[in-house]
Design a protein around this nucleic acid. Structure first.
Length: 468
RNA sequence: GUCCCCUUCGUCUAGAGGCCUAGGACACCGGAUUUUCAUUCCGGCAACACGGGUUCGACUCCCGUAGGGGACGCCA
C-alpha cells in the first residue's frame, strides 16, 4: 500500500508554526515511505475561499522547503460531490433531514448544558414521520450510533475510547446545501486515497464523528496520528503575545529553513539522544512511534542554538545573498565591493551569529562607508586617550607597505607595548570604535585587511574629526 | 459544566519492570582560550506531580487526586 498523507490548512492568510510542524511530519512520513503528500485547502466555508490566503500558505511551505504532490485541491470546488454523498446517505437511511429552527436548537443546547451533557440535539427528526414545516430548509444529519463504545486506534495516543452517548447526530449538510467540515474531510480523504491522517490533537474528538461517516459509507478508515499541540514558552496556547506564531515571522527574524525543520522535528519527536538531525537524516529516521504524547513548549533558546549550528554549515554565497536582502530592507546600498568584503569574511561572520539579523548587524560596517554613526560605547572609547592612540596607529598605518592581518597585528602589538604597557585591548578598542563605529566586531585586524589601507585611513580620519 | 488527552531537570527529551547512583541537548553558573563581543573547549547545578495498589523489584503496569491542554457550532 502506498502511503498517502495530506496537508490541509485553513486559508487563514498565514502559516501557523503548528501547521508548519504538522506539514513537516506529513511530508517526512510520506517521503520516508515513498508515498505522496497531498495539499488541500479547507475552505468549505465560502467566506474562507481566498486566493491571497492560499498564496501565503504556499509561500510558507516553499520557504520551509516542503513540497506536495498533484494540484492544490479546494474543498469549495468539491461541494457537489460532498452533497451527493450526503443525499446518498439519506437514501440509504443512514442520514435524515432535520427541520429544527435555530431557536429550538438554542433551547436544546441550554437544556443540555444544564444537565451537564456534551451532546444536545435530541434527535427529534431522526425517525420522525411528521410533516416538515412550511418554508424551513432542512439540514442533513447523520445517524450516529446510540449505544456501546466507540474506539479509535491512534498511532500516537493508543486506544482511545468514548461512549456513544457522547456523540450526537451531527450535521453533514447545511440548510443552504453546502457540506460541513466533518463531511468534507471524510469524503475528500476517501476520494484522495489518504491512508494516514497526521494532524493536531485538537481533532482527536472529531475522529469519532468522522468514523461514523466512514462506517455509514462502508469506507476504509485511515490510520490516525494525533500530534500534541505546541504551547507558548509559558505553557499557554501559542498566540501572538508570545511573539511569533507564523513561519514568515521566523523567516524575518533571521532563522534558516533547515534550522526550523530540525527544531520543529525535535519538538515532539525524538530519535534517542539525537539533537542535530538534518532533513536527509530525518527522511531515513522519521516514524510515528517517535512522536511524544504530551504538548511541548516553544523554546527560543534552543531554536537559536540549532539555528547557529546551521548558520555555520550554510554556504557563504547563500548567506551573503540573504544578508544583502536584509540590507536592502534597511535601505543600505551594497555594491560589488561591499559584497566581496562580506564574502571574504563570511567564514568568521557566520560562526559568530545565531541568526541572519545578527549576522547583518555584525557585518554592517563592511558595507557602510564614511559618514556613519558611532554607538554610545564606541563614542566612549574615543575619549582623549582613545583618540591619542588611534592617532598613533594612524601614523604607523600610513607607512605600512604590506597591509595584511599578521602585519597589522604586529603593528598594533608594538604600539601597545610602547604606549600602553603591552595592553593590547587599550589599543584595539578605540581603533575598533573608530573603524566600525561599535564596541564589538569580528576580528579587527582581518577586517582592516579586507577594508584596505585607504579605506581604513579614511575611516580613522573621519572618526578623529568627528569624535568628541 | 461534560467528555477526551497529557504529566521525567527551568525547557525539549532518552527511558518499553531490574542496565537508573535516572542519560543527552538548550538555558544557567564556574573555568580555559580570546584585541571586544561571540565562538570553541572543559566542569557544575538541576527532574521521575502526589497518593494508593500489582510485583521479589517500579520512572516504567493499574486505580485515584491534583495540575495542564484539547473538544463540545448550520467554524475549520
Amino acid at each position: 500500500m502506498t502511503v498517502v498523507t495530506r496537508f490541509p490548512p485553513s486559508p487563514t492568510g498565514f502559516m501557523h508554526i503548528g501547521t508548519a510542524r504538522t506539514g513537516l511530519f506529513n511530508w517526512l512520513f510520506a517521503r520516508r515511505h515513498g508515498g505522496k503528500m497531498l495539499f488541500r485547502i479547507e475552505d468549505t466555508d465560502r467566506a474562507r475561499h481566498s486566493e491571497e490566503a492560499v498564496a501565503a500558505i504556499v509561500n510558507g511551505l516553499h520557504w520551509l522547503g516542503l513540497d506536495w504532490d498533484g494540484d492544490i485541491i479546494s474543498q469549495y470546488g468539491r461541494s457537489d460531490r460532498h452533497a451527493e454523498i450526503a443525499h446518498e446517505l439519506v437514501q440509504a437511511g443512514k442520514a435524515y433531514y432535520c427541520y429544527c429552527t435555530p431557536e429550538e436548537l438554542e433551547q436544546m443546547r441550554e437544556d443540555a448544558k444544564k444537565e451537564g451533557r456534551i451532546t444536545f440535539y435530541d434527535r427529534r427528526w431522526r425517525e420522525s414521520t411528521l410533516t416538515p414545516p412550511e418554508g424551513v430548509k432542512p439540514v442533513v444529519r447523520i445517524k450516529a450510533p446510540m449505544s456501546g463504545d466507540r474506539v479509535v486506534f491512534d498511532k500516537v495516543q493508543g486506544e482511545v475510547r468514548v461512549q456513544s452517548e457522547q456523540l450526537d447526530d451531527f450535521i453533514i449538510l447545511r440548510a443552504d446545501g453546502t457540506p460541513t467540515y466533518m463531511l468534507a474531510v471524510v469524503v475528500d480523504d476517501h476520494d484522495m486515497g489518504v491512508t494516514h491522517v497526521i494532524r493536531g490533537d485538537d481533532h482527536l474528538n472529531n475522529t469519532f464523528r468522522q468514523n461514523v461517516i466512514y462506517e455509514a459509507m462502508g469506507w476504509d478508515i485511515p490510520a490516525y496520528a494525533h500530534l500534541p499541540l505546541i504551547l507558548g514558552p509559558d505553557g499557554a496556547k501559542l498566540s501572538k503575545r508570545h511573539g511569533a506564531t507564523s513561519v514568515e515571522e521566523y523567516r524575518d527574524m533571521g532563522y534558516l529553513p533547515e534550522a526550523m525543520r530540525n527544531y520543529l522535528l525535535r519538538l515532539g519527536w525524538s530519535h534517542g539522544d539525537d539533537e542535530i538531525i538534518d532533513t536527509e537524516q530525518a527522511l531515513q529516521w522519521f516514524d510515528l512511534e517517535g512522536i511524544g504524547q504530551s504538548a511541548s513548549r516553544f523554546d527560543f533558546d534552543k531554536l537559536n542554538h540549532v539555528n547557529a549550528h546551521y548558520m555555520k554549515l550554510a554556504d557563504n554565497q547563500r548567506l551573503t545573498d540573504l544578508v544583502c536582502d536584509l540590507y536592502k530592507i534597511r535601505n543600505i546600498e551594497v555594491d560589488e565591493l561591499g559584497r566581496s568584503r562580506l564574502m571574504s569574511r563570511m567564514d568568521e561572520l557566520k560562526s559568530r551569529a545565531k541568526n541572519l539579523v545578527q549576522l547583518a548587524d555584525d557585518a554592517e560596517f563592511f558595507v557602510k562607508s564614511v559618514p556613519y554613526d558611532f554607538d554610545e560605547k564606541a563614542q566612549a572609547q574615543l575619549n582623549e586617550d582613545g583618540k591619542y592612540i588611534v592617532k598613533v596607529i594612524r601614523d604607523n598605518l600610513s607607512e605600512l607597505s604590506s597591509f595584511t592581518a599578521p602585519e597589522l597585528e604586529v603593528l598594533c602589538k608594538s604600539v601597545a607595548d610602547y604606549h600602553r604597557d603591552g595592553k593590547l585591548g587599550k589599543v584595539m578598542m578605540p581603533l575598533r570604535a573608530a573603524i566600525t563605529g561599535r564596541s564589538s566586531s569580528p576580528s579587527l585586524v582581518h577586517a582592516m585587511e579586507v577594508l584596505g589601507q585607504s579605506e581604513v585611513l579614511a575611516r580613522i580620519d573621519f572618526a578623529l574629526s568627528k569624535a568628541v
